[in-house]
Amino acid sequence: MLIDALQCGRFDRKVIEKLVAGGFGCVTPTLGFWGGAVEGFDSVAEWYDLERANADLMKIARTTADIRQARREGKVAFVLGFQNSGHFEGRIRYVELFAALGVRVTQLTYNIQNDVGSSCYEPVDTGLSRFGREVVREMNRHGILVDCSHVGDRTTLDAIEESEQPIAITHANAASLFPHRRNKSDEVLKALAAKGGVVGCATYRNITPESACASVDGWAEMVARTVDIVGVDHVGFGTDDSHHVGQAELDWMRYGRWTRTEQYGAGSKTNSGPSKPPEWLPEVYNLAEVPAALGRVGFSREEIAKLSAENWLRVYAANFG
């Protein structure tokens, strides 16, 4: 079974069919980057509609038992998540409401500072706000996994310390392997591992070494080097791959409603469009090639199972059962 802790874009039946065929047991889609509670409610409702229309292929998972059941039934499970905490709208009670609706993952910030904490792109990372500390504790209480992928290092370290449960960096790489503000320092990754968390290695070209984009064995080697930093129990997959995403969707991810100035996200002025996928991963469904590649770089069968799914299942179980 493969678990991909972060994908984004628009999911439809064809995408779901390919995920099933590719051996995916569970995927976390992105229900929102920007927006408030009403847009968040709309996104959750749209996923309920998608599940009803494709009940033969998919299941919205609220627990790890749901993920395993979906796998036995030949379906792909979806763990609903957001890439920002704006849907809480500064209201601590909304954490419980979204948890009751089935949301199981929320990233504390996206690409700008918010009322919870700082993003990785802020010139000064001020750490978790007082409200942010309340949000982390409330997410713990109600079974929502704390995600710090786009979050600044200081805020991430605060979240790791504040959380009673292991947290996640669902889609990033080690900055020591590819220096980029979106990637995570060894200090952060080791703190994450010390509290039982998991980092999902990404395939997104803008934050991934060229050798890991050139071949599946190169990506497996990057996974191995990440394991060298944090240990085999604290690494998984989080591709950050997209479905049906063009320039308009990319602009929404980068600009939202907060700016009129040019924004590039993890790209740059000379690399402003949608990023080219890795040569070995023209579509995310080719991720099924990874377990064999992990074996070729020296991982045992048990270790491959941890990296492919079991590490995520452990963190999921700790957070939402």
Results as ranks from 00 to 15, higher is better:
Phe131Thr: 00
Gly231Glu: 08
Val230Met: 12
Gly22Arg: 00
Asp240Pro: 09
Ala37Lys: 13
Thr30Glu: 04
Thr270Phe: 04
Ala53Gly: 09
Val216Glu: 04
Leu157Val: 10
Val245Pro: 02
Val146Tyr: 11
Ser211Thr: 13
Ser119Gly: 10
Thr261Arg: 07
Ala61Thr: 03
Glu96Trp: 10
Leu145Met: 15
Val44Asp: 10
Asp186Ala: 09
Ala214Phe: 03
Phe11Tyr: 14
Ala77Phe: 10
Val44Phe: 10
Asp251Leu: 08
Met253Asp: 10
Thr63Met: 06
Arg205Thr: 14
Gly102Thr: 09
Ala292Met: 11
Ile229Phe: 01
Arg13Ile: 12
Asp49Gln: 12
Asn173Gly: 15
Arg314Ile: 02
Ala55Asp: 09
Gly132Trp: 01
Gly273Ala: 14
Val315Trp: 04
Gln247Cys: 11
Glu122Gly: 05
Val20Pro: 01
Ala305Glu: 12
Ala174Leu: 07
Val297Trp: 03
Ala191Val: 11
Pro274Asp: 00
Arg52Asp: 14
Asp56Phe: 04
Thr30Asn: 13
Ala99Asn: 07
Val151Met: 02
Asp12Lys: 09
Cys213Glu: 04
Ala202Thr: 15
Leu6Trp: 08
Val136Asp: 01
Leu189Phe: 08
Leu50Asp: 07
Arg104Asp: 04
Arg181Glu: 11
Gly127Tyr: 00
Arg260Gln: 13
Gly265Lys: 02
Gly35Val: 02
Glu17Met: 12
Ala55Tyr: 02
Leu294His: 07
Trp219Asn: 07
Asp233Asn: 15
Glu162Phe: 02
His87Cys: 14
Asp158Arg: 06
Pro274Lys: 00
Tyr316Pro: 06
Ala214Trp: 02
Leu177Trp: 10
Phe78His: 14
Val297Glu: 06
Ile92Pro: 04
Leu97Asp: 13
Phe24Arg: 03
Ile67Met: 03
Gly200Phe: 01
Thr30Arg: 02
Ser43Gln: 10
Leu192Lys: 09
Glu138Thr: 11
Arg137Gln: 13
Ile160Thr: 06
Leu287Tyr: 13
